[in-house]
Amino acid sequence: MTDAVVTALREIANRDLYQRNAFHVTALPTNADRRTTRRRQQHVIAVLEAGADLETTGSRDPDELRIAFDRLLGDPRRRMVDEVFGEWGRPNGDCGCDVPVHQAHDEAVYAHASAIELLLERPSTSSHPATLGMWQRASERWTTALADPQFWQHLRNRVLTLDDWQLAASAVDQIRSEVPATLTGPLIDLATTGDYPARVVIMLREWAVGGASVQGWVLDALRPQYERAEDATVALLRRLQQGYHQVDPVIAELERSVLPVYRRLQVLLPSEQHQRTLALRDDVARVYQNSAVGIANEGSVQDTRITHLFDQAEGYAGTADMRALIAENRAGVAQLVSIDRFRPQHAAQPESSLGTGCIVGIVVAIAIVTYIVIGLLS
């Protein structure tokens, strides 16, 4: 069972790491005792009930304030986690720290919070150097702070000061183990759900806090997206087996639900380096290709959609085998088109059929395409 400290650290590992911090929301110092916290809570509740404006808190949202006070007055393990990412301020003698210890911590917090805010802004050429510089600075500041033994001694002293049976000394070791992943969390959150993953990739290269573990954290975070995209492509290929009338809705669904995920994966875990992305890339190409062959085999070889679908398939194909298969299918359909042009115009043929007639070449071409379709969909 995961301890409450680790659970809390993982819950806050996102772009709101500092914005939702309980001490930031309530504007309380991280060394505030329960009595001070309770008084602030009562004051805030009274002000909100009176309909007056709050000027002494970092947030004016009643729900956000309620959650923050619950964290501070509830489980001390969760409060301890918020202390790590709150402002420590100048030492007052309770924790036994020297001024530089708190200063180094707060500089890291400010730099990291500012870096996240910059990355949330719409990208522009002028903002890129500033954003990159801020992320480099945040990485350096947190690396320096975490390397100082007094940083961890401060947390041990805080455990003793809080003096709660739920908060054991081992909480500090859990924080030490988990905090690099928590600090990397905002980048991973923005990489997996943000609008500009390409920017995040650049910042991840400058983020030294997680070290070699960062790549593994990115993989773990993207695993659900892989699974959704893979399941979706399998379902779309099965739908194509129902007939060429499914092509338009299948392509629409592919471009709506699969391609955005694939493009994000291609940016973060490119197919040139990651086999799973490469496999998904070929699956996307297969959907386009099977759609083209389906139309040619069951509908009309003159259908203008076929060329576009083959072009898309070739564009997405990632392996030599897939490219060869697409070329083979395209050549087969081209042969059908050539034969269809010489078909007698007076012959009564349904538009959706390639026809058989008495020309042996047509029969052979249809057999080729049918064989290809069966092989692809089996």
Rank of each mutant, 00 (worst) to 15 (best):
R343P: 00
A221T: 04
H346N: 08
D98A: 15
A279L: 08
P249Q: 13
V363S: 13
E227I: 08
N21A: 13
A181C: 07
G210C: 04
L162E: 06
T319C: 10
G357E: 11
Q136I: 09
S353F: 14
P249I: 08
V200M: 03
E55S: 12
R286D: 01
A168H: 09
L280V: 00
Q246E: 15
A229H: 01
M134I: 10
G96D: 02
V287T: 01
A52T: 05
E351L: 14
N329M: 14
L269H: 04
P149M: 11
G357P: 15
L120I: 10
A8D: 02
A365N: 05
L54Y: 02
L183N: 06
S291E: 05
V360K: 14
E107Q: 15
I12N: 01
R323T: 05
E55M: 09
S353M: 11
L48G: 09
A331H: 10
V363E: 14
Y110T: 13
R276N: 04
R176E: 14
F85W: 03
E253Y: 00
D195A: 15
H274V: 11
T125G: 11
W88Y: 04
T125H: 11
T57F: 09
P91M: 15
S338H: 11
V369C: 09
G332C: 05
Y262A: 11
S300V: 10
Q42E: 12
T184V: 12
E351W: 11
T182E: 02
H245N: 14
A320K: 14
V159G: 08
D173S: 10
Y371V: 12
P186A: 00
V287L: 00
F151M: 09
R238Y: 09
R281I: 00
I202N: 08
V337S: 10
A365E: 01
L120P: 00
R66P: 03
T144I: 05
T144E: 02
G185W: 03
L204Q: 09
L377R: 13
E206S: 14
V364Q: 06
A27S: 15
C358F: 11
S257P: 00
L65N: 04
R40L: 14
V201F: 07
T143I: 06
I175P: 03
P123M: 09
D164L: 02
H274K: 03
H112G: 06
A279P: 00
T131V: 05
R199W: 05
R330M: 07
T56F: 09
M80V: 10
W165N: 14
Y262T: 01
P62F: 03
W88K: 01
R156Q: 12
L219F: 10
Y18D: 03
A198G: 11
T125V: 13
E227G: 02
F23P: 06
F151N: 03
L377T: 05
Q136F: 04
W152S: 07
V337P: 02
I295A: 08
E230W: 02
E314A: 14
L259H: 06
R40N: 12
G216T: 11
S378A: 15
V250Q: 01
G243P: 02
P129C: 13
I362H: 08
G51S: 13
D33H: 07
L269R: 09
Y316T: 01
T36W: 02
